[in-house]
Design a protein around this nucleic acid. Sequence first.
DNA 1: TGCAAATGGTTTCAGTTGAAACCATGATGG
DNA 2: CCATCATGGTTTCAACTGAAACCATTTGCA
Lengths: 154, 154
Amino acid sequence: MPAKRHPDHAPLELERFLPYQLSIVSNTVSQAIADDYQARHDLSVTEWRVMAVLARFDGLSAREVAERTAMDKVAVSRALARLVAAGRVRRHIHANDKRRSVLGLTATGWRIHDEVAPMARQRERELLARLAPEEQAWLQQILDKLMPQDVVKS
Amino acid sequence: MPAKRHPDHAPLELERFLPYQLSIVSNTVSQAIADDYQARHDLSVTEWRVMAVLARFDGLSAREVAERTAMDKVAVSRALARLVAAGRVRRHIHANDKRRSVLGLTATGWRIHDEVAPMARQRERELLARLAPEEQAWLQQILDKLMPQDVVKS
DNA sequence: TGCAAATGGTTTCAGTTGAAACCATGATGG
DNA sequence: CCATCATGGTTTCAACTGAAACCATTTGCA
């Protein structure tokens, strides 16, 4: 049952509307990956992002983690609380500034990271496999252009 | 302060990780548009999507709306409750099946739709303006390929 | 110095979310 | 027929979320 059109009202074709398409694709992809490690390690997306950034940049403060993950500081604070409680992240206080924390993965944290990271990369490869190499290159270039500048910095 | 790398652990470079990039771009874009009509019309993203699909397909049931918006039925149910209460959507019961509802925009609903839709399209144009025409075409083709098939049907 | 503003981080509060349970109606098959 | 299963839709519950308020510490500057 195809239903009536209302040409005079120029309704939006959702499935051709870029922001909508982006949101569907993005959510599907992220959820598929998250399902995997969520079940296996009781790890939320935000927690995983925090771990991923601490794996690359040891000794960051919570604020710096928030910057690098494009998450707000409340979310980071909560993710860190859970990660520290689970023994996956170590936190101590900065020597010269008692407000800052100095964060890093524990041995346990590294073990989990080393299991999740290859799996995430594998999922990314599967996703990209649906595109021709040419398309993969374009996608990369396009996303770089669309990325909001305040996330990129340094 | 650039921070140590840990090459032996092959940490994920979040900012080059496709699912992450997609999620940042998608959220930024959707939020920018939503901010606009949220403030002006007290309309959430889910509500707007429901209205957009009802503008194109009059008389759908809630389940069909859920299918076409790729939202789950709980979200649709709640969005509809708000929209009906606000007099933006009319709902009556299907003649031959008392479980189904038959949905459509009211005059008020149309008025809002006709204000929001052009604005959303304008924002989309602004976004696309950051890309070369060639890139726009590639993006469209790529998103079509990445779109999960169960969303596309019919 | 010392006091106001800024900064790092946590907590509170109220709103949103999805999974599962639920209710009503409709279809199916013995 | 009528028991059972499927379907459309809503409600409940617990977890998650972000904005604003908050606390502690540091910085800036009169």
